[in-house]
Amino acid sequence: MFIDLLIMLVMAYGFGFLYYGLYRNISARVHGRFGPSLAQSFYDSIKLFTKDTSTDFGWMFFAGPIIMASGAILTVLFIPYFNHGERLVGLSPYGNLIVVLYFMVLGPLGNALGVGSHGNPFGAMGITRGLTRLLGLEMPFYIAVVGLMIANESADIGTIMANQAETYNIIAHPLLFIAAFISFLGFLGKSPFDVVGAPQEVYSGPAVEFGGKFLALALSQSAIFSFAKLLLMVDLFLGGADSLWDLILKTFVLFVASVFVGNVYGRFTTAQSVDFLLKVPTVIAIVGLLFV
């Protein structure tokens, strides 16, 4: 059990950074440059963990990133990796999809407390943008997930995966998938929904005062979290994974798709992104929900 959890965590960490490196590489190629090495994000993380000093604004600031990381790790542990339900299911028997959806906001909220406590207005602005954007992101995603839960008569991720043995949900409920995918892009924090940490406007936003180990933890959790989201999408719409290769393939495909979208579009403002998310994908999701 604990070994399983450890493996899940390490896999999430490794794949998260790998995919992040990949993302940077692909973006670089799109821009017409070589880009850093695949392991660059990993190097960054190690370096940040081993910095000599980091500014600490008090215990709440200290706890903020830890809560955020705990939230991300918790999310990963509650999402089963494979659809055969034997290994690497983590804690998913003790939770369900709704719990996971809420874990996904637990970390950010804990982080928000930490960020708020250092008194830098840019941090609070970033958090506000993030929470505002969350409004838009969650609407289509939740509708899609609700549609799946109603269609499967269950809120259990394992059951939803098992029910896709014949047809994947991406084919059975394409509209729901489109809606969920659009907000998934936003959840990954890539363009065009990357207004939260816009360095030019709000000076890195939430991460404005994070240096050294705090930034390291923030980066690591974001890698883990990205993988968790990929995993969730795979579990919900692509029938989960049978084997390790299946897992890598499916997450990779999904990831690459999101990277290309992210590289093509510019950045929406907060209002624009919420407006867009509340109009296009939400309407798609509602139509999809009516078909369920």
């Binding site: 821009h31 070589f34 190097y43 890195s204 991460a207 240096g211």
Partner: peptide, 20 residues
Amino acid sequence: TSRYDIERLGVVGVATPRQA
């Protein structure tokens, strides 16, 4: 940026001094 692409060497720009 693309012309010299110093990201190859692991050099990335950040906005705030705390991260730099």
